[in-house]
Design a protein around this nucleic acid. Structure first.
Lengths: 216, 216
DNA sequence: CCGGATCCGGGTTGATACTG
DNA sequence: CAGTATCAACCCGGATCCGG
């Protein structure tokens, strides 16, 4: 990208991360670091392979990312964020916070990866009964499932994986699953629209976000 | 911009504000709202006039900006941020915070407007002697001067204008002025490099940021 | 299969000229 | 003052190909 050539911190930041795809590459790395070129590609539906290669080169030159050749058995190069790249987490979070209302008007066919839920869920969800034994919810939206788990201090953690013995299981479209967990839809209503929930509803309520009603 | 078409809040945000120049237009409006097309143009050195017109149209369609025809005497249209557009302030701030280290390596010829100082200065500076009578510093870097003033609650405010009776005056290159106020350079050192300071040095020290030394 | 490089058509940007 | 018109240069997306 051409520099804006302005003595302004925001403009300088955009010189470095304002290119198309760059911040989404950072998002992927925040979620799946360290990862291979191919992993990045499948986590960035729509990116052209040459663009990904270009961006990684630029990001490496800008000190956001490093590449390392993995040990012999793996024999692949892994991409990882530098501390400076990690610091972009706050930028992604702030952008996500601003963009959240736009999710409602996102077309149903939009691409999705279940592990993308980690950023918003870990940010907004809390364990409302932190003194009780931890629970695990398996979430499936079509691709690889993730586990939503209560952790120490009332935190909620999301990690890839399945658990046959999960306390509850949620399956449905990305939108239904997300809006359910975010407390924007009732379980009954979500079920009517095709969402499947197995397990004690109390498990869901334990982590579900308390609805923020902007209606007075 | 083409949509990323992903069900992800950050990607949706970038669909709307990820275009080149869009966030810098928001920056201008945050600082000088409401303002005319021409004001925007001169606050965005390097932008092509057709791009500015395009962006304003898109931003209006996306609910970030409104245009209003000013009352008869003025007879011009004014651009203003909607509340939704105002909410981008946090995005700009976070970007600026991340980009600040890059200012050190910004080429000396970079474009600058003195009022751009308002965002970082109001964020980082505090009045260290808030119980004493307020002070005003006039800052000049080549274009229209601004006033840095202590305000209630230990806050520091920046507004356009000059003040012949200011308690102090700073004049110099954008970099020298900024690094001096941010506590990255000593007054003596700055003077050696061409900065001019008139007034009691205690006035400067009263608002100057306490240097954050990352050297152990 | 992995990690790209190359090529090409089309869209976007930037510079300038021009206009109501 | 507030744009529109035009055009060249650049960037992006998609497809294909290629060496390990």
């Amino acid at each position: 990208m051409r520099s804006y050539d302005q003595y302004c911190a925001a403009a300088r930041a955009l010189d470095v991360v304002g290119d198309r795809w760059t911040l989404l590459i950072v998002r992927e790395l925040l979620l799946r670091q360290p990862c291979r070129y191919t992993d990045l590609r499948q986590g960035l539906p729509g990116i052209a392979t040459n663009l990904l290669a270009d961006r990684l080169r630029e990001m490496e030159a800008n000190g956001i990312v490093t590449r390392e050749v993995a040990a012999p058995p793996v024999a692949t190069t892994l991409v990882r964020l530098t501390p400076r790249g990690e610091a972009l987490r706050r930028v992604i979070e702030t952008l996500g916070e601003w963009g959240e209302p736009l999710l409602r008007e996102t077309p149903p066919g939009a691409a999705f990866r279940t592990y993308w839920l980690a950023l918003p869920l870990e940010r907004y969800l809390t364990d409302h009964e932190a003194d009780r034994p931890p629970v695990t919810i398996e979430v499936r939206t079509g691709d690889d499932p993730v586990l939503v788990q209560t952790a120490d201090g009332g935190a909620v953690r999301v990690r890839p994986g399945a658990a046959p013995d999960a306390d509850a299981t949620i399956q449905g479209s990305p939108r239904l699953v997300f809006e359910l967990l975010m407390g924007e839809v009732e379980l009954a209503a979500a079920r009517k629209e095709g969402l499947e929930y197995h397990g004690d509803p109390a498990v869901l309520r334990r982590v579900q976000r308390v609805a923020v009603d902007d209606v007075a």
